[in-house]
Amino acid sequence: MAAGGDHGSPDSYRSPLASRYASPEMCFVFSDRYKFRTWRQLWLWLAEAEQTLGLPITDEQIQEMKSNLENIDFKMAAEEEKRLRHDVMAHVHTFGHCCPKAAGIIHLGATSCYVGDNTDLIILRNALDLLLPKLARVISRLADFAKERASLPTLGFTHFQPAQLTTVGKRCCLWIQDLCMDLQNLKRVRDDLRFRGVKGTTGTQASFLQLFEGDDHKVEQLDKMVTEKAGFKRAFIITGQTYTRKVDIEVLSVLASLGASVHKICTDIRLLANLKEMEEPFEKQQIGSSAMPYKRNPMRSERCCSLARHLMTLVMDPLQTASVQWFERTLDDSANRRICLAEAFLTADTILNTLQNISEGLVVYPKVIERRIRQELPFMATENIIMAMVKAGGSRQDCHEKIRVLSQQAASVVKQEGGDNDLIERIQVDAYFSPIHSQLDHLLDPSSFTGRASQQVQRFLEEEVYPLLKPYESVMKVKAELCL
């Protein structure tokens, strides 16, 4: 049975990233139509530049190519590739079939990587351009969430054990800070992308030097003109047959890092959902379990974690691919890159769409948070109580021993009897502590235990987050809708 299948058929496997999760716009960027249309555009740009620099290419040939950029006979191309065992030459023939007058000058002087690699770089750039505003929107939604809850005390956790208090907004800023680093890295790697350009079979530009009869300047002009037509500021000066596969490492490393950030955020949300302090959106008709109707599973956060793990592992592909590119190139890269580049971007696209949807509907339960604080705060307040007693004339050592005994009794009630923490009640009825009984409410005010959390939130948002989001103001209103 021949390899390949009808990918629109229910009898043929289709990647869930495309069929179930990723956005239509990201799927289109990695589609065959987008790819092969870009090949034709690159052939047109090459012909236009070659004509401008004096090669015998007519206006009629150029116009014929322009008129057929979208006229792609995919069936013919597939048949040609089956016959020739070469995808680029299959599309040269297919393009030439609908451009008979231009057929002889299509791909003039070029090698397969002229269309293959340059198209990949265009796709990487455009895919990054799709991700950047999506990530900015996630940051914006979380920034709104953090600002609104900047002063809401909550129990902090280290080692997932109760620690000092923080605020809900401050905790959210930990998430935002990681995503801001990801946004900066995505922008950097996007701006650092260079075009492969017009380089020939081993990167020496020998074929173009021959076409222009040894004119170095025209060869350099050709490279520059096509690079500018493709919208790049610069091209690699040095290439082998391909652009260095280190570029793929750079791009997928940034995406993998984004995956790590999203995994951490969504894990926190899942843990908070278990504590009943916070939940992701839950639709009115949504079913959490087929057997347990009360369940409210954090399905979206779980999906993000599941896909983020996949995204983090994909960076190993370009690392290994770059390491086995012998001399000017081997074909070890080809099949692998067809999979890992598309999957990385479709996965990143999915987790950003999902995280935006989550961040637009996060639900906080202040009463649950308050109750958990009441359970733990008495123990945390013991040092403040000791200091207040010393100020009232008591002995630190005597007070410490009193607190120690009462704390152990209260802990026994919590752990052995399943009761509430009654340390404060014990202190309130103990005559030894009568000098500070009137101060206990103040000493137990949760806001006095959150330090500068709310001020940190305000400063972080104003100095770091809002300036970073400013270039994306025009796209901030787009909502994230999930079908599944």
Rank of each mutant, 00 (worst) to 15 (best):
G116L: 07
I265S: 12
G104T: 15
C304F: 02
E48G: 05
S257L: 08
V226I: 06
A103M: 11
T58K: 07
N357P: 01
F208A: 05
Q416Y: 13
D178I: 01
L461K: 04
G116H: 06
A335F: 06
P378C: 06
S289K: 01
V315D: 04
R296H: 08
C399S: 14
Q439L: 13
C266H: 10
S306E: 00
E417N: 09
V254T: 10
Q356S: 09
M476W: 15
L174E: 09
C305M: 04
P293A: 14
E279Y: 04
S112K: 03
E220H: 14
L362Y: 06
I237V: 08
V88I: 15
S448K: 14
I385H: 04
P435M: 06
V363P: 05
S334R: 03
I72T: 07
D268F: 03
C172M: 06
D191H: 08
R396F: 04
T204A: 08
E250G: 13
T227S: 11
C172K: 05
D191R: 07
D216H: 10
W45A: 11
Q320N: 13
F95D: 00
Q416W: 13
I72H: 07
M181S: 12
F95R: 01
D6A: 11
L174P: 15
P318C: 08
D144I: 14
K199I: 00
V457Q: 02
A308K: 02
E425C: 08
L121D: 00
K415W: 03
S290I: 01
K391D: 05
L331D: 01
V251A: 15
H91G: 10
I287E: 02
R303S: 02
G109D: 01
G231A: 10
C304N: 15
E328H: 04
T202G: 12
D117C: 10
L362I: 10
T321I: 09
V368S: 04
S323T: 04
A381W: 04
Q375N: 12
V457T: 10
E48N: 04
E48M: 07
A163W: 01
F345E: 01
I249G: 06
S454W: 09
V429S: 11
S395K: 09
M181N: 08
P100C: 06
D192P: 03
L152A: 05
L355A: 07
S412M: 09
P446A: 07
S454T: 14
K187G: 13
K187Q: 12
P435I: 08
L124A: 09
F449G: 03
E462P: 06
A3E: 10
T354H: 12
S301W: 01
F236L: 10
V324Y: 06
L461G: 03
L252N: 11
L155T: 01
A163G: 13
S9T: 14
M389Y: 05
Q205E: 02
A344I: 04
R196F: 07
A230T: 05
M387D: 02
D398R: 12
E360H: 04
H97S: 08
I249Y: 07
M292F: 03
L252H: 09
L444M: 15
V368H: 04
V429D: 12
E50A: 07
V368P: 03
A260I: 00
V115P: 15
L121H: 04
L258E: 03
A235Q: 13
K367Q: 10
R270A: 01
A308R: 01
V247Q: 13
M65D: 00
F74V: 15
Y21P: 04
A411S: 08
D441C: 12
Q458V: 13
L252Y: 05
A342N: 08
T154C: 08
V29N: 15
F232C: 04
A291E: 02
D398W: 07
M476S: 15
R190L: 10
F449C: 02
P298E: 02
V198S: 08
Q325R: 02
A78T: 11
S447Q: 15
A3C: 14
E383Q: 00
H86L: 00
H263Y: 05
S474Y: 15
E328I: 04
S23A: 13
T119G: 11
A308V: 04
I427E: 02
A410S: 09
P435Y: 06
V457I: 12
T167W: 02
G393A: 06
I403K: 03
Q320L: 10
L131R: 00
T204M: 05
E481L: 11
V226D: 00
I424T: 12
I351V: 11
L131M: 12
K246G: 03
T227W: 05
I72N: 11
Y114W: 15
A335S: 14
D59Q: 09
N274S: 12
P378Y: 03
D430V: 05
S207T: 14
R426N: 08
Y432N: 07
G96S: 10
I105Q: 12
L444Y: 05
K170F: 08
L362E: 07
F449E: 05
P298I: 03
A411M: 06
K479E: 15
N68E: 14
W39T: 10
H93C: 13
L186W: 11
A344F: 01
T58C: 09
E79A: 10
T321Q: 09
R245S: 01
D420E: 07
N68P: 10
T382K: 03
E60R: 10
T321F: 06
R137M: 14
P281Q: 14
L42M: 15
N71K: 10
R459M: 12
L183M: 09
N68Q: 15
M292Q: 02
E376D: 09
D178K: 05
D445Y: 08
V390G: 07
K199D: 01
G288P: 00
Q63G: 09
E462S: 12
T201F: 02
S289E: 02
T154V: 08
R245F: 00
Y432W: 09
L142I: 09
Q408N: 14
F449I: 03
Y294P: 01
D430P: 05
R85N: 01
V138F: 13
L46H: 05
C304M: 13
V413F: 13
A431D: 10
P471E: 15
R85P: 00
L193A: 10
T58I: 13
A2Y: 15
L352T: 11
S151F: 09
